[in-house]
């Protein structure tokens, strides 16, 4: 699958990922004689290095150049948010840099190719599945469903109405269809939230949040075993599927 980010430093790279899901300073953060990270396990030489954002001393730009001149630099950098220090180091060292990528969906060991001119990264071994998560609100409460243990992904976890978007379907249509299949409810479409990625072991879900309002009671099919109407902010009390809070945030039901 291909993820579109922002092109910052040009060039292409293909290789194995080292992921550090935090801010990183090249000055002090890496051993310049080996390429070993000092703040975590791993060695970034010859790898594509993904971390959230650069921090620390501006000398970090020169550290990157130093690594490059010793043949110990990463071959590409992926950031959530690029800043001056790492951008400078990447450009002067001819290392491609793409930002605007959610580091949460990347894992150390992933094989990745990146294009610093198009601003894209590609995970060739990972399939992409487009899915919807529908939330129905009634007054100040929202409907949450517990997945049955017959479900392959996330059995017994709490979530919304969910399912794959079929060929030719819009996210809204898919959510409406799933709502009917899973709860026999009809509800009024309110809005769609911005989609986001959720990482699985061997595939990626692109989750499209959809908001409904309705007042009927759900009649559950085999996919779910329980339901609850609770305040969206009480979602923390339930054991949910990954990133449920993100769905609620993108629908404007809870604050960041």
């Amino acid at each position: 699958m291909i993820i579109q980010g922002r092109a910052i430093s040009s060039g292409r790279a293909e290789g194995e990922l080292v992921v550090l899901n935090e801010d990183f300073s090249f000055l002090g953060g890496v051993d310049v004689s080996t390429g070993d990270l000092r703040v975590a396990e791993g060695n970034i030489s010859g790898k594509i290095f993904a971390f959230r954002r650069g921090k620390g001393s501006t000398v970090g730009s020169y550290t990157i150049f130093d690594l490059k001149s010793k043949g110990l630099a990463p071959i590409g950098v992926v950031n959530q948010t690029a800043e001056t220090i790492v951008t400078t180091g990447a450009v002067i060292s001819d290392i491609p840099l793409v930002d605007g990528i959610d580091i949460d969906v990347l894992r150390t060991g992933d094989v990745l190719s990146m294009d610093g001119d198009a601003g894209t990264i590609e995970l060739p071994r990972l399939g992409l599945r487009e899915v919807v998560t529908g939330i129905v609100t009634r007054g100040d409460e929202a409907l949450f469903l517990r997945r049955s243990d017959k479900e392959h992904h996330f059995p017994r976890k709490w979530g919304g109405v969910s399912g794959r978007i079929e060929e030719g379907e819009s996210p809204e249509e898919a959510a409406k269809r799933e709502l009917m299949e899973e709860t026999s409810m009809e509800a009024e479409l309110v809005r769609k939230g911005e989609p986001f990625l959720v990482r699985g072991d061997d595939l990626m879900w692109r989750v499209h949040p959809v908001l409904f309002s309705g007042d009927a009671e759900p009649t559950l099919n085999w996919e779910h075993c329980d339901h609850r109407w609770i305040k969206p902010s009480d979602i923390t009390t339930l054991d949910t599927v990954p990133r449920m809070d993100e769905v609620l945030m993108r629908l404007g039901l809870i604050r960041p």
Binding site: V32, S57, V59, Y62, T63, F65, D66, S69, I92
Partner: peptide, 14 residues
């Protein structure tokens, strides 16, 4: 003191 040997390598290059 602030740019170190990495800085020198860069300036030599530029």
């Amino acid at each position: 003191k602030t740019i170190g040997d990495g800085g020198i390598t860069y300036l030599e290059h530029v």
